[in-house]
Design a protein around this nucleic acid. Structure first.
Length: 733
DNA sequence: GAGCACTGC
């Protein structure tokens, strides 16, 4: 009873998800007629994963852990939980869990599965993300949630006893919380042999994951008392993506940005229609590339012979890079006829600007999206046929010696390169141009030696095959571990150094984290959580954020570039209780946990800086935040007021939300909610109680505003986004 | 004079 589209009638809209998941007609949403359901059923059966239904159920039945490697579009995320339910894994009040690294994925997958099962979302199928629990404890049998939420759930139920099967999806991304979760799940398995784990991922090195889940002392293949094997099973499912032809450069070019731009122009000139996605590293690169391309497009529009000459030269240059092009000749330029629509894409853009990339490309035009890694995993663009890959991304690195996290441009892994290329094959067969570069010398100086290897790498085929690392370095080996350690401690794991990780963090980073927690009074001499402070700090749900405005730390009046870590914020909240300024400190904590409250609409940095100065407080960024929050409340939380003052309205709404959550938790912990009114002295005291580890002093003869940290004499500077930037500091520092 | 991408009771 498949539904067919009849030409002449309105074409049914086909929905597709991040996973490539299930196709169905939105014309018959959760139809109860039976007709729509049948069509969904047919669609489900067409997914690659369907062929493996019996095999998956058999493996889950007989193995404690099953590793499923499935490329994009296999349908594993939406189908496997349903198969499990159909096979009875949710009987007797048990729940099937499926975790995702991102909130959006949790929501979309959950609503898709509810629709396929023809049930109301929030009942039999539900989801939980921070601030949003769309489940019903007596009804929900399939539950989607972020891996962070599942970690939180372990605080109340360390064995996760209500779940019969836990599927950890996108495990190849190796995010911090996924890795912690995997380590803990392995531990739970020993206490709960009946628990089933499914580790699902796209490009994981299945064998290394399997050996992680291998029990330490092999019991042999005869199985345990539950009749299941403790050896992990591995199953591979093919994807549904189209073939993507890969092109490598023949040899290096000195400038990957220019190479990317000329490659786009040559695709535009020589290849059939279809949108282009370019991967660069960050805002600076992207803005520069957008400008270059826009100029080229405009030049060709004018059709002046000079401009054409330039374009021709550039394109000719680009063609030389690629073998497949060498036979071809540059006949004519069609830039004037088929104009390019060039769009930037990165998280710092306003929502409205981001949404532009999703607009359908007008007939006869070609869209070029120039993006950061955001388009690699977090969002999916339809209609992309060509991908240009610079081979670089910005990655976070943590130096435990200086306790400073850095963002550096580094070569991507093979797994990343494959993922990027796959973005071209979603609608029809595509092409990926692996761009080329010579490592910028300045970048090289910041890079860990291990990433560089013996010589400058170029993204030729040879480089890809021989030199590119198979997978990226897991986040846990690149991060400050303070919040991770406290989470494990709160779950009663005392021997942190002996914890079994999918990838072990460096001992230096671990020791640094323990040291900081000890100095905060959160851990005692035996490295156990102190009571009550330690347990209270662990209870407060705060996130670790990257440094940018205000996420930096300062010694009351010196604002240096450092990262906030949640136990420090939590400690600050606890301290505010005695100091009688909990209302103010909770506001500050809420603002510290979001990216930025500022909004540079239209990219006018100068106007934003001016607006900032209207709120600026001599005490520094934290007190400045209080001023902004006060203004927001006085305006009656008006979006107009925000716009006028270059404040991000959506960010402020989120601050209000987080603030409410923090107030609830604080009250549960016995903190009295009290305002200190205008006494900023106590606010500053509370801030320093949490962040004293980052205290620094202005160098006596410093002419360039250099500070040194008290702890390790690390050189630090006030961040340019701080209201204290370029202010002359005197006295107390 | 500067902000890869995510995320939590």
């Amino acid at each position: 009873m498949a539904q067919f589209w009849k030409p002449g009638t309105e074409r049914p809209r086909i929905l597709d998800d991040e996973e490539g998941g299930v196709l169905f007609y939105s014309a018959s949403p959760s139809s109860s007629s039976g007709f729509g359901y049948a069509s969904i059923e047919k669609q489900r059966q067409r997914l690659p994963v369907y062929k493996y239904r019996t095999a998956i159920l058999y493996l889950v039945e007989t193995h404690a852990t099953t590793i499923i490697v499935g490329e994009t579009g296999s349908g594993k995320t939406t189908q496997i939980p349903q198969y499990l339910k159909e096979a009875g894994w949710a009987d007797g009040g048990r729940v099937i869990a499926c975790t995702q690294p991102r909130r959006l994925a949790v929501q979309t997958v959950a609503s898709r599965v509810a629709e396929e099962m023809d049930v109301k979302l929030g009942e039999e199928v539900g989801y939980t993300i921070r601030f949003e629990d769309n489940t019903n404890s007596s009804l929900t049998r399939i539950k989607f949630l972020t891996d962070g939420v599942l970690l939180r759930e372990m605080m109340n139920d360390p064995l996760l006893s209500k779940y019969s099967v836990i599927m950890v999806d996108e495990a190849h991304e190796r995010s911090l919380s996924t890795d912690i979760l995997l380590g803990l799940l392995k531990k739970i398995q020993r206490r709960r042999p009946e628990l089933r784990l499914i580790i699902a991922s796209a490009t994981i090195e299945a064998k290394s994951m399997a050996s992680f889940f291998q029990p330490r002392r092999r019991r042999g293949l005869e199985g345990d008392e539950h009749g299941s094997s403790t050896e992990p099973a591995i199953l591979s499912v093919e994807g549904r993506g189209y073939n993507v032809q890969i092109f490598y450069v023949e040899e290096a070019v000195p400038d990957y940005l220019r190479a990317a731009v000329t490659t786009v122009l040559s695709i535009h000139e020589q290849d059939s229609m279809g949108d282009i996605l370019v991967f660069l590293t960050g805002q600076d690169d992207i803005d520069a590339a957008v400008q270059l391309l826009t100029e080229e497009a405009q030049n060709s529009k004018k059709c002046s012979s000079d401009a054409l000459q330039t374009s021709k030269a550039t394109i000719k240059g680009a063609l030389d890079f690629y073998m497949p092009f060498q036979e071809k000749s540059v006949c004519s330029l069609r830039l004037a006829e088929h104009r390019l629509i060039v769009l930037p894409l990165y998280s710092g853009l306003s929502r409205a600007d981001q949404d532009l990339v999703f607009l359908p490309t007008p007939r006869g035009k070609r869209k070029v999206v120039i993006s950061t890694n955001i388009a690699e995993t977090s969002l999916t663009l339809e209609g992309i046929v060509y991908v240009v890959d610079s081979g670089f991304s910005k990655q976070r690195f943590y130096n435990p010696i200086t306790d400073i996290e850095n963002l550096v441009v580094a070569p991507i892994s093979k797994a990343s390169a494959r993922q990027r290329a796959g973005r071209a094959g979603r609608v029809r067969p595509g092409r990926c141009y692996s761009c080329t570069y010579i490592l910028n010398v300045l970048h090289m100086l910041q890079l860990p030696v291990s990433l560089i290897g013996g010589r400058n790498r170029l993204y030729t085929e040879e480089y890809y095959v021989n030199d590119m690392s198979a997978e990226g370095i897991p986040e846990i080996q690149r991060s400050n571990l303070v919040s991770c350690v406290i989470q494990l401690k709160a779950l009663g794991i005392d021997n942190i150094l002996g914890f079994d990780w999918p990838a072990s963090p460096s001992p230096e980073a671990m020791i640094r984290a323990l040291e900081i927690l000890y100095s905060l009074g959160v851990l005692d001499d035996d490295a156990k959580l102190t009571s009550p402070a330690g347990f209270q700090v662990a209870e407060i749900p705060l996130i670790t954020v990257d440094s940018s405005d205000g996420h930096s730390m300062y010694d009351v009046s010196c604002h240096a570039r450092c990262d906030n870590t949640d136990p420090m914020i939590s400690k600050m909240i606890l301290a505010s209780n005695q100091l009688g300024c909990s209302e103010e400190i909770i506001t500050i904590a809420a603002i510290l946990s979001i990216q930025s409250i500022w909004d540079s609409v239209g990219g006018s940095q100068k106007k934003l800086d001016e607006a900032k100065m209207r709120f600026a407080a001599a005490e520094g960024d934290h007190v400045t935040f209080l001023n902004v929050y006060k203004g927001f409340l006085q305006s009656n939380k008006s979006s107009k007021w925000c716009h006028k003052n270059f404040v991000n309205y959506h960010a402020m709404k989120k601050v209000v939300e987080i603030r409410e959550q923090l107030r609830r938790v604080a009250q549960q912990l016995g903190i009295v909610l009290k305002s200190c009114e205008s006494d900023m002295q106590v606010v500053r005291k509370a801030v320093t109680t949490g962040f004293f580890a980052y205290a620094c002093h202005l160098e006596a003869y410093s002419h360039n505003g250099m500070y040194k940290t008290l702890r390790s004499s690390q050189e630090v500077y006030i961040h340019p986004s701080s209201v204290l930037f370029r202010k002359i500091m005197k006295g107390e520092c």
